[in-house]
């Protein structure tokens, strides 16, 4: 870890602990005061001009504590809008979001849902935002639409209680000069930016959460005694933990390696890198969360124990951005076509 990373992560860890029990609005005010939503926005628009790697560090810390904070929505919106051509409307939105205005944003890849009717799924922030970011793959189009009576908003309670999801029906929303930021070829780069940031955000969340629940599990095995010895002494369990550790270390190394690559030279291939990282990270998180349940024994089934929260977040994370299988297939197709080139 670089000194920069260590410092940012320590500060993030402290802030996340401070806001853990606060009302979401108060927590968001604290995050805004700390500059989190402004992290990646360009400096002239009130931002800190940090890169995707810095976002990754924050997302990993948020994953560790299963944070419900809406940071991904803000940073996703800024990544998308920054990739659109500059315009007064675009710039105004970047400034507003960097300054702490919340936006409703879907955590699914635009290519996933939109074909099935004008509905955005897995939207976060719809309960506290006045507007929603709309990213449509087919057209393609980027817009910020008001959450007024033209947009139907339905809460979708999930098993993962660390997040609150909504469906937005936008078939009656107005896409005009007031709302559309980019359209057609001009929106392609923004779509890629959205997809990259989304997959990276979920991957980082998975890596952080997986590392934390594995630590907790190993600690439990060291403390829990059966057959007159700590469970951690049994080789069968040690080997499982070693495999899980290897999986999370590999997922983290890959994620940071890919993200450094994306930061160094943004390109369309970045989408495939982000998808690859998401696939590896979400399957590692799921494997670790599943084994954490088993290795904690009966207490893992009790709602008081946090184990289930990690399992449920892992299961939801698999569905967010794109499914791991779809990511893998996209990577394979990209690889095969790169050979032909």
């Amino acid at each position: 870890m670089s000194i920069e990373q260590t410092e940012l992560c320590e500060a993030a860890r402290k802030l996340l602990a401070d806001i853990a029990t606060m009302h979401p609005d108060e927590a968001w005010r604290r995050l805004t005061a700390a500059g989190w939503p402004a992290l990646t926005a360009p400096e002239p628009l009130g931002g800190l001009a940090q890169n995707l790697t810095a976002c990754c560090w924050l997302y990993m810390e948020m994953g560790r504590v299963l944070s419900p904070a809406l940071l991904p929505a803000s940073l996703l919106a800024i990544a998308t809008l920054t990739a659109c051509a500059a315009s007064p409307v675009r710039d105004a939105w970047i400034e507003r979001i960097a300054g702490g205005e919340r936006l409703a944003v879907s955590l699914r890849d635009p290519s996933q849902d939109f074909a099935q009717g004008h509905r955005l799924r897995a939207v976060i922030g719809a309960d506290c935002a006045g507007h929603a970011l709309v990213v449509i793959a087919g057209e393609p189009l980027v817009a910020v639409v008001p959450l007024d009576r033209d947009v139907l908003c339905v809460a979708r309670p999930t098993w993962d209680t660390t997040r609150t999801l909504f469906d937005l029906d936008i078939s009656n929303a107005h896409f005009d000069t007031a709302t559309v930021i980019a359209r057609g070829a001009a929106a392609e780069a923004a779509l890629d930016a959205f997809s990259i940031h989304l997959h990276v955000a979920i991957a980082a969340d998975c890596v952080g959460a997986a590392g934390k629940i594995l630590d907790e599990t190993v600690t439990h095995l060291k403390n829990r005694r059966q057959f007159d010895r700590p469970l951690a002494m049994f080789q069968a369990l040690k080997h499982r933990c070693a495999d899980l550790k290897t999986a999370v270390v590999a997922a983290e190394a890959l994620l940071l390696h890919y993200v450094a690559d994306i930061d160094a030279r943004p390109c369309a291939e970045g989408v495939l890198l982000a998808k690859g990282a998401k696939s590896i990270a979400s399957s590692a998180f799921r494997a670790i969360a599943e084994d954490a349940m088993q290795l904690h024994g009966g207490m893992a089934m009790a709602v008081e124990h946090p184990c289930h929260l990690y399992l449920k977040r892992a299961l939801l994370n698999e569905q967010l951005a794109s499914l791991g299988d779809e990511c893998d297939i996209a990577v394979a197709r990209g690889f095969i076509s790169s050979l032909a080139a």
Binding site: V249, L254, H257, Y258, S279, D328, V331, A332
Partner: peptide
Amino acid sequence: CTEDPLILRELGRLRTQIDALVALSDG
């Protein structure tokens, strides 16, 4: 079998895992 989704999935997974291996050994 270039269109077999099961094979494609494994190839894609492998492609990414190799990059993870390179990232691990570089680290």
